[in-house]
């Protein structure tokens, strides 16, 4: 499972060195979801991703670190789009993920990409009759849904890596994202 892990490399050093991967992923996922909120998911399913309520963007490290927190229940991300113009990246986001099986709201930090404060909601495919009654049944149902969420998050991250490590990143994806951001980043282009 970890046969690709480099030999004699300390985990903490590697984690810090590659911390930007999670930030680039969240930034990509956010912008891509603003362009089209439907992503191909595991199997033939579609996954709907929407960034909502709160975005934290950051640039620099240590004393040079600069952060902007955007709280927008109406998903008006003007301030966050402008922050991208000064090379800030998303370090934490609140997002909503919807699949055939479930809908959930969660916080996702860029450093671990491990879901936080997950709120699962019933979807049309999940009726009241399916509601588990006992404590163990509720727990098993919760774990099952959390496992599905893990699969989806891993799938989305893998999708990002495939693009990020390909020539399409520079040739297609970055121009696509820049085109979308054009209205907000006029000052940068003029400078």
């Amino acid at each position: 499972m970890s046969q690709n892990y480099p030999e004699n490399v300390d985990f903490l050093d590697l984690w810090l060195e590659k911390m930007f991967l999670g930030q680039e992923f969240l930034t990509w996922l956010w912008l891509a979801s603003e362009i089209d909120c439907l992503f191909p998911g595991p199997g033939d399913s579609d996954v709907e991703v929407r960034f909502e309520k709160r975005l934290v963007l950051e640039t620099g490290q240590g004393q040079n670190r600069s952060q902007v927190v955007c709280q927008n229940p109406d998903r008006d991300w003007t301030e966050a789009f402008v922050a991208l113009g000064v090379d800030k990246k998303v370090v934490q986001a609140h997002l909503n993920i919807r699949t055939e099986l479930f809908e959930c709201a969660l916080n996702l930090p860029a450093d671990t990409l491990a879901p936080q404060s997950v709120k699962m909601k019933a979807t049309a495919a999940f009726t009241e009759d399916d509601e588990p009654k006992s404590q163990i049944a509720k727990f098993l149902s919760q774990v099952s849904l959390m496992s599905s969420l893990r699969t989806i998050l891993d799938f989305l991250f893998h999708s990002f890596l495939k693009i990020r490590l390909s020539n399409d990143w520079s040739a297609k994806e970055l121009p696509r994202l820049r085109e979308f951001l054009k209205p907000w980043i006029i000052s940068r282009e003029n400078s």
């Binding site: 970890s2 984690w15 491990a114 991250f157 890596l161």
Partner: peptide
């Protein structure tokens, strides 16, 4: 080992990637 973006990524990709 804690799963972080880099360790997850290394598990997901081919040796060349």
């Amino acid at each position: 080992r804690l799963l972080a973006p880099i360790t997850m990524g290394l598990e997901m990709v081919t040796k060349e990637q």
